[in-house]
């Protein structure tokens, strides 16, 4: 039987690197994917995902007993990505206006695939649109729809009430739906659960 996160955290706090390595292996996929999606599908996600774990290691002493390690880790990941996005924004804000406009152009209709595009193409488009959402909206969609966290878990990560998660998710999905609607109508229905 594998050790619980709590036990691994306890061992890691005592300087057991092997235990921390186990935690990294346990969460590397999820943290990398989260960072990757929130940062806009860029290659430097590796660096920031690794930074998440390194910061976690640095701060193990601040981890509160009884808290969920995964939630704590996601919180650190979001702090890392927010810092990076702020840095990027500051850099972008110094660019000439024309470049900025190019970046925030809505998707060109001509780029849209033909109706009946494959699921993979639709997913790629959805991810591209996800990248165009503001950070707050992108975070909830990534945590809910890509990472499958419950509203309560997301609330724990973001440090807000579940009701806020619900409303942010509603707005974010509505924005995505509105942008992708022409492509979604022929998608399989009945996801309702």
């Amino acid at each position: 039987m594998s050790e619980s996160d709590e036990e691994l955290v306890r061992r890691s706090r005592r300087g057991d690197r092997e235990a921390f390595g186990e935690l990294v292996v346990r969460y590397e996929n999820r943290i990398h994917a989260t960072v990757f999606r929130i940062l806009g599908n860029r290659d430097d996600a590796r660096e920031f995902a690794q930074d998440t774990f390194l910061r976690a290691f640095d701060r193990l002493s601040t981890f509160r007993d009884g808290a969920r390690f995964s939630t704590w880790l996601y919180t650190i990941a979001l702090n890392v990505t927010r810092s990076e996005l702020r840095r990027r924004k500051a850099r972008r804000d110094r660019r000439p206006l024309s470049l900025e406009q190019t970046e925030i152009d809505p998707p060109d209709g001509a780029e849209a695939p033909e109706e009946g595009a494959g699921r993979r193409e639709l997913a790629a488009l959805a991810l591209r649109e996800l990248d165009r959402l503001d950070t707050e909206a992108r975070e909830v969609v990534v945590l809910r729809d890509l990472e499958d966290l419950s509203y309560e878990e997301i609330a724990g990560v973001l440090g807000c009430p579940p009701g806020t998660v619900k409303s942010r998710l509603f707005r974010a999905r509505e924005e995505l739906r509105a942008r992708l609607a022409p492509l979604l109508v022929n998608r399989p229905r009945g996801v309702d659960r």
Binding site: D145, R173, R177
Partner: peptide
């Protein structure tokens, strides 16, 4: 509206995860 939203959620949930380096 419901069908579009359901399709969107399904698409996102089915999106491939980025390959771990």
């Amino acid at each position: 509206h419901h069908a579009e939203l359901a399709a969107l959620v399904s698409t996102l949930r089915g999106a491939p995860s980025p390959a771990l380096p």
